[in-house]
């Protein structure tokens, strides 16, 4: 099927799920798709595994919201304090408040139980791809930067600086900014952003993801840079 890892090394995934059946079945799926998965059933244990000394031991985290020890949203916030590792939440509830809470804590994406395994795998592929650097033809090779007021974007290095200071963006926020920077001054609809940044198919219509990430991005780059066009979407002020 689709290759989970473009490189020879399988992707290391931290999988946190307390239900034994969902855990075992999902683990089997992950292993079938050549993920190097570590499955833990407790939020605190997950945090211990993640925060082990040395470089971050995982390429992506897949985490349930309701967990013993520490809930998924808190775990996500803790992870965000130390790393930009892609983080996908599995929410047992579809209620908007749950989902928004998770996204505000810094999750890159979420899936709602009961999920379709193919959808889950697609979401994982997408967040992992975002973390990989994309060679950009318009950038004209390494070293070329784009300037938007006090912001400077270096696509090849995946770096965004504000007044020369490097901003810590998650891969998703970076991709979101680059999409907006692709056509400054042009309004991009939520649906367009969903399909370009999150690889959602064109039929998805979840605007929470886009709205919450734009808010988070705004708080990092300065709110004046990104304009909301009510009912349409967002644009970057040139």
């Amino acid at each position: 099927m689709v290759q989970a890892a473009p490189s020879a090394r399988p992707l290391r995934i931290l999988f946190v799920e307390d239900d034994p059946v969902i855990g075992e079945a999902t683990l089997a799926h992950l292993e079938r798709h050549r993920y190097d998965a570590v499955w833990v059933t407790d939020g605190l244990e997950a945090w211990e595994r993640f925060a082990e000394p040395g470089p971050v031991p995982f390429d992506v985290v897949l985490c349930d919201v309701m967990l013993p020890g520490m809930d998924g949203v808190t775990l996500c916030r803790r992870v965000r304090e130390v790393a930009t590792t892609p983080f996908v939440l599995v929410s047992a509830r579809g209620d908007a408040i749950d989902v928004v809470g998770g996204l505000e804590a810094g999750a890159d994406d979420y899936v709602v139980k009961p999920f379709d395994v193919q959808v889950l795998l697609a979401r994982l592929r997408s967040v992992v791809r975002r973390a990989a650097p994309v060679p950009h033809p318009a950038a004209g090779g390494a070293g070329a930067v784009e300037v938007f007021g006090d912001l400077t974007l270096d696509r090849s290095a995946l770096e965004l600086r504000r007044d020369g200071r490097l901003l810590t963006l998650t891969p998703t926020e970076m991709r979101l900014f680059m999409e907006l920077a692709e056509s400054p001054g042009t309004v991009l609809s939520r649906r367009t952003l969903l399909s370009r940044v999150w690889d959602y198919d064109e039929w998805a219509s979840d605007s929470h993801l886009v709205d919450v990430h734009v808010q988070r991005l705004r708080s990092k780059v300065g709110s004046a840079h990104i304009e909301t066009v009510r009912g349409f979407g967002y644009k970057l002020r040139p």
Binding site: D19, V21, I22, H29, A92, K113, P114, F115, D116, V117
Partner: peptide, 14 residues
Amino acid sequence: LRTPVTGLVTAAAL
């Protein structure tokens, strides 16, 4: 029901 059903759906996909 949601958790067991998710387990069922995920396991059935295997």
